[in-house]
Amino acid sequence: MTKQLTAFRAALVFALLGIAFVAILVLNVNTGSVSIAPKEILRIVLSGKSDGSSIGNVIWKIRLPRLLAAAVLGGALSVSGFLLQTFFRNPIAGPYVLGISSGAKLFVGVMMVYVLKYVSSVPFWAVMAAAFGGSMLVTLFVLMFARRVRSMAALLVIGIMIGSVCTAITDFFITFADEANVANLHHWSMGSFSAVSWPNLHVISAIVFVALALSFLLSKPISAYRLGENYARSMGVNVKLFRVALIGLSSVLSACVTALSGPISFVGVAVPHMTKLLFGTSRPSLIIPGSFLLGGVFCMGCDLIARTAFAPSELAISTVTAVFGAPVVIALMISRQRRRTDG
């Protein structure tokens, strides 16, 4: 009976997330310097391409790609965070908190500064590759230090340290770089969904959805891994392979985000946690699609605030995500600490 209740709750949460997703999508397209009637939006979107009118151009060239980027990347960040939390068995883990985003930023930054000296523009696949390389490298570093660290706080400190070192190195390179390149890099490293083009979005979406599907296929071993490495192994999980898959997938996902829009803070920690609270369980087959959806909703909402709060000035997306995400992280730390002292 309670089993059916859980199934009902899951269906209800998915339905609500779906409605929220569509609502925020429409609201987002509708809001801005030019406001457009919902009916008009529907007609233009359903027509499949811009009809050449200025409204059509605003929707198809500016608002839609940005919006979809926020949705896909927000989802990718959240799933990446969930995979890292599984890996480290620590709810505080996430690509930004562990310094992985900073690592990606370092690689992309160094490449931009240096490669732009020789060629006029950097191909997107190169940015992508640099971001992935940076993510992987920092993850391996964190792994090396975090091997024997069980405490949540210690892992956090390691992540902050590694992130700071990466930022310091990035700053070092920026100091000695051409001004034009720096402006370019600075805009990117603030984190924004504004500069997204359709082709880049297509590439990233394809990668994200493949990674998402693969993560979903891992939901059974992830489920077992919640009981710890040794129990998982005793139930037949190939732990070594599983760990490699987790790190690989989470790095790909966070690299996609960083490559397209720069580092975005706290989404990876806050969204999976909120998703678990919504579903009332940590079952991965629900949390993976659930946190993808909620991550999309969360980032679209934050982007809406970033665009409109101080219009015509635009806030960096991280500024907004931090305002909503950081309190969740703090709450998580406190509640965990309390549970430990209780038990």
Binding site: P91, R226, N230, K276, S282
Partner: peptide
Amino acid sequence: ERIQPEMM
């Protein structure tokens, strides 16, 4: 070993 699964 003491396991601490989250929300299980």
